[in-house]
């Protein structure tokens, strides 16, 4: 009698487990369909002509639906960025790790706090206490290397993958 019971229970449990696994596998396509589709993944790169930018000027270009800040830094800004005291940096990163060519700072212009777009691209914008960028949503201050100095943002502005195709052309992505 006991043996029949355990055989019966085994069958029920095995069937239940098998069906559950199947249900889980069937759910995956319904979940995965929301991930970026093949055509979205393929639209990866943008080329930008930097020749019109004089030192001290910035442009914003759109890449993967997000703004990318490109700034032609002045010698003072470069110096300021390189001279930063590591102890002042919340998310430590030397300037040299954030640029390929110190004259050109290229980064994703999305605040690492909650995704707002920081100010600082235009001359008339507020640039924050470190003369870089300032996010008006919750008051994060970024320096001339785009590093977080003050405010709630946890990380430095993100650096996208890019390559210089020649002196004045950059390919982002």
């Amino acid at each position: 009698m006991d043996e029949t019971d355990s055989r019966r229970n085994f069958l029920y449990i095995a069937t239940g487990a098998f069906a559950t696994v199947g249900g889980g596998l069937a759910a995956w396509p319904l979940i995965h369909q929301m991930n970026p589709a093949a055509d979205v993944l393929a639209l990866a790169s943008t080329e930008v002509d930097l020749s019109p930018l004089a030192p001290g000027q910035s442009i914003t270009v759109k890449w993967r639906g997000k703004p990318v800040f490109i700034r032609h830094r002045t010698p003072e800004e470069i110096e300021l960025a390189q001279a930063a005291d590591p102890d002042d940096l919340k998310d430590f990163q030397p300037d040299s790790e954030r640029v390929q060519n110190p004259e050109w700072l290229i980064m994703v212009g999305v605040c690492t706090h909650l995704g707002c777009i920081p100010l600082g691209q235009k001359d008339t914008d507020a640039k924050g206490d470190w003369n870089g960028w300032f996010c008006p949503c919750h008051g994060s201050h970024y320096d001339t290397s785009g590093r977080i100095r003050k405010g709630p943002a946890p990380e430095n502005l993100q650096i996208p993958e890019y390559v210089f195709l020649d002196e004045t052309t950059v390919k982002i992505g």
Partner: peptide, 9 residues
């Protein structure tokens, strides 16, 4: 297999 198990159950 699943249908077979259902039949057994």
């Amino acid at each position: 297999i699943l249908t077979g198990m259902f039949i057994a159950v």
